[in-house]
Design a protein around this nucleic acid. Structure first.
Lengths: 325, 325
DNA sequence: GCCGCTTACGCCATTCGTAAGGATC
DNA sequence: GATCCTTACGAATGGCGTAAGCGGC
């Protein structure tokens, strides 16, 4: 059994059982992979992949178990490499962050500018995508961290830690009737307007739907986008009122818009950071986490990383008051 | 990085940093190991082993971490092989049990005779040794199961499950004054006699010492041995009274001795079965466990195997009443 | 008929064993 | 001086790439 063989079967699965595509992604030849997969199967005496003629059609029951263990082995191999780097070049390395537009644009800039100042030799990469893509990237090991508000819980091999709570604001043009509102905003004020907000599955959208549903209201959503910048653009066009994360209002750039606090109308959402369970984290990674969420010290993160169930991890934070943005 | 390289560094550590001895045990050449260790160190850019001239003197800090992860990787590799076997030859394989004389001689025979009848194709090996040796064998992967009463808790990478409680008996020759005793045995009856019992660290010896210490008594221990058969021999010689596990009295063979129940004088001891955390257990292994301890069903064992802390595992059994032997 | 996996073959890298060298205790 | 690790070298093995074959869709 060779580590490459394990790598190959994992990657073949990641490439939807297409060996040719796998070969391209790994910059190697297709027959090479094919042969190694076969050799592994011969050695183990079992089929990892089911075949119809010469096509791979599915993963066998035994194959699923083997691939799962292979992933864990390869993750530990990466940990060994990381340990070695940590002992030779503690301030050098890579940091891959997978996150959504909202975080990348509004929550992370301050953290990152401070971080790269302290660690100029760490090459930092941001991968933007949907919450699902983000979780998958972290789960596969393509990203060290996943930062998002939704969908992270779907991947059980991630450790997820709460970072901060955030609330929503309703944004309107200065000439909009609601801009002159003297009293507290009500859910009806919003429900009677055409709404521009996030796509489902993004940036706490589910909390928004829940608030309307709780009142038996059917919001009139005319337009959705994955990020607040696009939403603001269409609010400026007069398409409707926007509902976005409060932190997405920029006091300097958005002077033509008025933000009305709506934290009393919608439950706060929680942004989380996730990484692979049992992963070895470089010292600069611990520091990154703590810069993003000061309560997540190295000790807390290490403790959480030893727990297997997300439920147990969540218990660590029941008495912690998170910052609100 | 190759799996063999990881195997080599682990084995070199197991052989007290003696590469030549390691080579012998692995049936390979010493320079081969030496070179692979070096190549791994070169690839990682760190030293795993500290050297003084050409002798390996110690494991570096980084090396400790690397070796720990290597062990975990190799354990998972074994799991993959076990999964493969389970899918091809479910009733074939090996079962290595490391245990003490007491278990092998008095607790296991019934279980094993039933087991080999159902699984004639499983080759069963018993490794006898001290509790420490047993734990180490299981921890290293040389044994699938460790069964003992003491010392298992010293190895944190083992899952330990309670199997049964057992009590002690005082044994004397038929012509001994205590053999005629009409009342309940007291701790003083025992303390005033020369005692023959187990060596420290064996078969619940610590519980025995505790009971005397609690009464401020200093037992007069004249002879110790690791097994009850030897103890009985010296009781027969008139060396003193024996204190042994009650199950170690054989009604048919030991007719020249009298056993006096002492369960009220000493706390019961608990025999446990241990295996490596996260190990994949063959179906016949689950069955073996359950034959030995009926309350340890496959489901219970699997659940325990998912927990990281022994404390959490122990909690699974607080409401379970174990059999008493 | 195209796509995609398998087989065949040759080159190159790597591993392993033997033998000799050098350092430590 | 004995033990033990390192270096050197040759044989065998194995991985990988190119080219051809062949079975599905």
């Amino acid at each position: 059994m060779k580590l490459q063989q394990l790598r190959y079967i994992v990657e073949v699965l990641n490439n939807n059982l297409n060996v040719s595509a796998t070969a391209e992604n790994l910059y190697t030849s297709q027959p090479g992979i094919s042969k190694q997969v076969r050799m592994l199967e011969d050695e183990l005496g079992i089929q990892v992949f089911g075949r119809s003629g010469k096509h791979l059609t599915h993963v066998t029951a035994a194959g699923k178990e083997v691939i799962e263990l292979s992933k864990q082995i390869l993750a530990k191999v990466e940990s060994i490499k990381a340990i070695a780097k940590e002992h030779t070049l503690p301030d050098q390395g890579k940091l891959n962050i997978a996150t959504t537009h909202t975080q990348a644009r509004y929550a992370l800039p301050n953290v990152i500018s401070g971080f790269i100042q302290k660690y100029p030799k760490v090459s930092l990469h941001m991968h933007q995508g949907s919450p699902q893509q983000i979780s998958e990237a972290a789960s596969r090991g393509d990203a060290d961290f996943a930062i998002a508000t939704e969908a992270l819980h779907l991947y059980s091999d991630l450790v997820m830690l709460p970072c901060y709570h955030w609330n929503r604001s309703v944004i309107v043009r200065k000439d909009h009737p609601l801009a002159q509102l003297k009293r507290l905003l009500t859910i009806n004020d919003v429900a009677t307007q055409p709404i521009v907000t996030y796509v489902f599955g993004f940036t706490g959208r589910s909390e928004l739907d829940k608030a309307f549903a709780a009142q038996g209201l059917e919001p009139h959503i005319v337009f959705t986008a994955t990020d607040a910048d696009v939403i603001k653009t269409y609010v400026r066009l007069g398409l409707g009122v926007g509902v976005i994360a409060s932190m997405a209002m920029d006091a300097e750039l958005d002077t033509d818009l008025v933000a009305i606090d709506a934290s009393h109308l919608f439950d706060a959402s929680t942004t989380k950071i996730g990484f692979r369970k049992g992963a070895f984290l470089r010292s600069y990674m611990y520091e990154f986490i703590q810069r993003f969420a000061p309560h997540l010290t190295k000790e807390v993160v290490e403790q959480a990383n030893l727990l297997r169930n997300q439920d147990d991890i969540d218990k660590l934070f029941v008495n912690v008051t998170l910052p609100v943005r």
